[in-house]
Design a protein around this nucleic acid. Structure first.
Lengths: 202, 202, 202, 202
DNA sequence: TATGAATGAGTTTTCATTCAT
DNA sequence: AATGAATGAAAACTCATTCAT
């Protein structure tokens, strides 16, 4: 009764197939307007087939979110900038962010949906919070170094700037959802974020 | 066809009563998890009674959103700052914003829910867009004046800063939803926003 | 407290106004898919206004049906043919019928809807039955005269021919509802009905 | 996707079970007064169970109508009469019709309800039209042969007689709905129809 | 006479999920 | 691993009717 590698591979393939399809559905309708039937139809599997891999609709959402963050995080933290000045580290971080956002394309649309869901789904909120704090700390640490360096003014609150920089990207992403013609994304986000960084430079 | 003032008053009173109740429901569950029955129960009216005043769930949402913006806009544009420097205008605007946000309390929590819905409800998106552009232009105009004044660096894109400042508040509001303990709202938002303004000062 | 003639006239005018509007609604949607709101909106009056004149939806239907039959009957029985042969009486009756049907235009579309409702609304069924029997007797009497005259074969069942002639018109009216391009109405009805009359001639 | 025969059989059994129950409900209340709850209760299945097999109330109606016509057509066209005279072909057709109507019992009551619905449900109207034209052509072809034979007068319009014969049966069926005591169904229909045939004989 | 706010049972349909196969 | 029939609570919304004004 040993399982051969194919079966295992096929298992992951199936999950991937379901998640790929689910993302397309989410982009069209958002989470709460998408039904399991929508996800199932898009996946090409049967009802039981999808439920075999994801125990519930919430479970499927977590699957999508986890994959989203995995891809995202891997990219963002790929480059080691620890030898640069704090200013350049932030600059590169924000620029990298810009490229990534472009690459992930309209997936950023899902972000707002996830945020909205997170307010009412504890598991999702916890997962989001973990990610948020990770990012916040990552950026705040760079800011702290800059303050200690004398690069940044010492009345700066590192977490405020960190949350501010994250917020600029998230908030402008939200704006793009409703006013795409009035926002040059991600250029506006980068310019605004860099202005914020300039603002704390001595 | 003709209505005496009493009837009108009573009519508006009912609408208000329904909207007040709806906001409480929305704060607890968010739009897509709130059912009409929830709104109806909270309103104290009967099913038909609520539907008499709001033709659909979407209509009720629009009612809430419209009122939200009306109160918001009235406050934000209340003070005339046209005699101040661009820098001070922005500063006062952001500070006023801060007070307003505190005053409106956790209504800002609804904002993310509205954004998320706006992606899929055309009427709501249009309403949001109108509001967004109004704000964006209001801020961008101040930035332009600052550039012309020589207060701000002339490579600044006014709309980028405008969207950036709005984004900081919106994005940090989103963050508060999932990581309230890690964000000192609205102080972080104000500090980050002011840093951005400092960043474009000459 | 004597009522002046104007009030009475206005009363009938109102009823007429409501019935006229109701017929238009019925033509579009049929009785069971039309709501009181549809009737009310079309009438130009208010809810209470319409209910003041018609106590219920069924009452309104009866109003339409009564008026329908009143107009119909008045036309059909207008001409005195008692001096003609039975054959000519039937011929003129059917020809008059033809003209009338053309004049009443697509009101004949309502007939099937009325029939269908009559199966389940006792009051309507009784009213229909009265009308039906009146017609049936009117025609059967002519057939009887023809038999006694020696014009028609004496094995003829007068009521069978009467129901048959009514049926031809009703049945072909029904057919027109679903296959208007395949039926030349009312010419087909007249030709078929006259063939039936010819079939009982000696 | 692949199904074993048992599953298919069971599937058809279920559909049949639902349709059988639905017909009973329709006979009692007619289509527009029957609710899905009525159909569901009568079927013995659960709400979701019925909806699994029929996607909507309209779909269920189409199921009933299709089955009605299938049984009807199979019977009507069962006998080959092509060697007889046109007169006898019509006679046998109408007599066969009579037997069939008796056999189908009060199902003919449903016919008027279907006609009334067909005016407002496109899918149903199309289905009805197809059936109507099939019957009309079938009868008209016999009439044409009779004209060519010299059996029938050559000024006869075949489609008029065809629609007339169908109309007699449909129209008298309608009459039975409202005046059952005054109509000897189907005898009246047969006598009237045969009179019509006699009327076109030379 | 006429208005329209209010009622609440009822409508059709959807949905996440289970389970025998 | 996978199928899809079945469940039944819940969803959004409708509707004929009433009644205070």
């Amino acid at each position: 009764m040993s399982q051969n590698p194919n079966t295992i591979a096929s298992n992951e393939t199936r999950r991937s197939q379901i998640l790929d399809a689910a993302i397309n559905v989410l982009l069209k309708k958002g989470f709460s307007s998408s039904s399991m039937n929508d996800f199932i139809r898009a996946s090409g599997l049967s009802k039981g087939g999808v439920y075999h891999h994801f125990k519930s609709k919430e479970d499927l959402l977590m699957g999508v979110v986890n994959r989203y963050f995995e891809e995202y995080l891997a990219e963002v933290t790929a480059i080691d900038l620890s030898n640069e000045t704090a200013y350049l580290q932030l600059k590169y971080f924000l620029t990298g962010h810009q490229d990534l956002l472009l690459k992930m394309g309209n997936l950023s649309q899902l972000l707002m949906d996830f945020y909205a869901q997170a307010a009412y789904i504890p598991r999702l909120r916890d997962q989001f919070r973990t990610q948020y704090v990770t990012f916040q700390r990552y950026i705040a640490d760079i800011v702290k170094i800059g303050i200690d360096n004398g690069e940044f003014v010492n009345t700066t609150t590192p977490n405020a700037i960190a949350s501010g920089l994250i917020g600029v990207f998230d908030g402008i992403s939200a704006g793009v959802l409703i006013a795409p013609d009035d926002i040059d994304f991600p250029n506006f986000a980068v310019e605004a974020a860099m202005a914020m960084v300039d603002g704390i430079c001595i």
